[in-house]
């Protein structure tokens, strides 16, 4: 029976990877398109305008409506000073819950305001800026932006060595869980997907639900805790945990 279980675990991990890969594929497209916008402007010796950046909008809509069942919002966030006419800028669209129409995300971009969108200090902006690598974050409460409980997949936009912003996508934690429930059930009656900090991303048991932390002793996959099966999700800082 161990083989069957192995197989189920592998197919669960494969499902996680395919969902995340398809979201990143859409993000990569936006990343390249945005880099092209900057490239074109640079060829003229200029910075692009917010309107220039809006030329990527068809691809944003495409990703939003055809990027699979889990993309709740996507777009490009400009690094401060990278656009000619706006100090900070989001070309970001989302599909509000219960709707099918893409809407622009309207946020308070004044960093002086309480609840203002200080996006430059958010990990999904700051980490790709510092490391040059893409990142998967969450689930977390996105209080200044979408007001939802989400995961963010984010990718740096670079031209030569310069960081110009990020292309990213939001996934609602509940949507991700929905697409994972079937494969989690196949793995076992108490199966979890957890992130690097030991926070539950998706779960099929009421004992440990999304957003909760595994008990401290069980938070790292480095040391496999007794009685728990930990399977790494390749390419992601996540683990599949089975009771």
């Amino acid at each position: 029976m161990a083989n069957v279980k192995d197989l189920d675990q592998r197919s669960a991990v494969a499902r996680v990877n395919s969902v995340i890969d398809s979201v990143f594929a859409g993000v990569d497209v936006l990343c390249e398109l945005a880099a092209t916008v900057y490239e074109r402007a640079a060829a003229e010796g200029e910075l692009p305008s917010a309107a220039d950046l809006a030329s990527i909008r068809p691809a944003v809509f495409d990703h939003l409506t055809r990027g699979g069942p889990v993309v709740a919002g996507t777009g490009v966030i400009a690094a401060p000073g990278s656009l000619a006419d706006q100090p900070r800028w989001l070309e970001w669209w989302r599909i509000p819950r219960g709707s099918t129409e893409p809407r622009p995300l309207s946020v308070d971009l004044d960093p002086q305001h309480i609840g203002g969108y200080e996006y430059t200090s958010t990990p999904w902006f700051d980490t790709p800026r510092r490391t040059g690598h893409r990142i998967v974050l969450g689930p977390y409460v996105d209080y200044a932006g979408t007001d939802e409980y989400i995961l963010t997949l984010s990718c740096p936009i670079r031209r030569n060595e310069q960081f110009l912003g990020v292309a990213a996508a939001d996934v609602r934690a509940s949507d991700l869980e929905q697409v994972m429930l079937g494969v989690l059930d196949a793995v076992g009656p108490e199966s979890l997907l957890v992130n690097a900090t030991g926070r539950v991303i998706a779960s099929n048991t009421p004992q440990l639900i999304v957003g909760s932390l595994l008990p401290a002793a069980h938070r790292t996959g480095d040391e496999v805790p007794v009685g728990l099966g930990w399977v790494p999700c390749e390419g992601l800082p996540w683990h599949l945990v089975t009771g």
């Binding site: 002086q112 309480i114 609840g115 689930p139 977390y140 409460v141 996105d142 209080y143 007001d147 939802e148 409980y149 957003g211 909760s212």
Partner: peptide, 27 residues
């Protein structure tokens, strides 16, 4: 700002969008 942000971040650390929204309104 620093006082308000602390309270808002506490609510965000609680993983609750509703508590966070209310905390922002109260602040």
């Amino acid at each position: 700002r620093a006082d308000g942000r602390f309270h808002i971040e506490i609510a965000a650390a609680a993983q609750s969008t509703r508590l966070t929204r209310q905390e922002i309104d109260l602040q």
